[in-house]
């Protein structure tokens, strides 16, 4: 099979580019440890409260250390449960100081949901049977929308909360 000289150049350039991309991604993944979430930790979707983190009193944002937070979320059709405030009202607005690290943990008792703090890298699928989790650092102050980005039924687009990154 004969390849034109220029086609060889093109394929060498193309394959070289693909390898470069893969090396950059592989370096990020296996040297720096930046993976998309994948922990494989299972949970019974009908018994999510059996897990300490998802008991009603542990939901929402908790400060564990200076600049260290945990955010436990139960995503269900069509609501994000972020716990309740002092008056017993559901929390729909959380504030996180800029630059702090947040360990997000999310589960669902029903169907598949998305967890996306829009405009950030905090983007995960939330599937029945698994605990979704990832650590994020939000570096830009502002008001972000936490929303469901996987279709979960007729009220899918009504599923949201606000994440405010404060100065």
């Amino acid at each position: 099979m004969h390849l034109h000289k220029y086609e060889k150049w093109w394929l060498i350039f193309g394959v070289g580019t693909l390898i470069t991309f893969l090396l950059i991604l592989g370096y990020g993944a296996f040297y720096l440890g930046t993976h998309p979430q994948s922990h494989g930790i299972t949970i019974d979707p009908q018994e999510i409260e059996a897990e300490e983190s998802f008991k009603p009193e542990n939901l929402g944002l908790t400060k564990v250390d200076e600049g260290q937070y945990v955010l436990n979320v139960v995503a269900s059709a069509f609501n994000y449960d972020l716990g309740t405030d002092e008056e017993g009202k559901p929390v729909k607005h959380i504030q996180i100081p800029k630059g702090s690290t947040v360990l997000v943990q999310a589960v669902t008792p029903d169907v598949i949901h998305g967890f996306n703090i829009a405009g950030t890298n905090a983007n995960m699928m939330v599937e029945p049977g698994f605990i979704s989790s990832m650590e994020v650092t939000l570096n830009k102050a502002g008001e972000y929308t936490l929303l469901c980005n996987e279709y979960c039924g007729s009220g899918h687009h009504m599923m949201f909360a606000t994440v405010e990154v404060t100065e």
């Binding site: 034109h4 220029y6 093109w10 350039f13 193309g14």
Partner: peptide, 14 residues
């Protein structure tokens, strides 16, 4: 064949 235009075109794609 003369494929100068082709190599330039695919370079743009690249």
């Amino acid at each position: 064949p003369n494929l100068k235009g082709t190599i330039i075109s695919v370079s743009i794609v690249g």
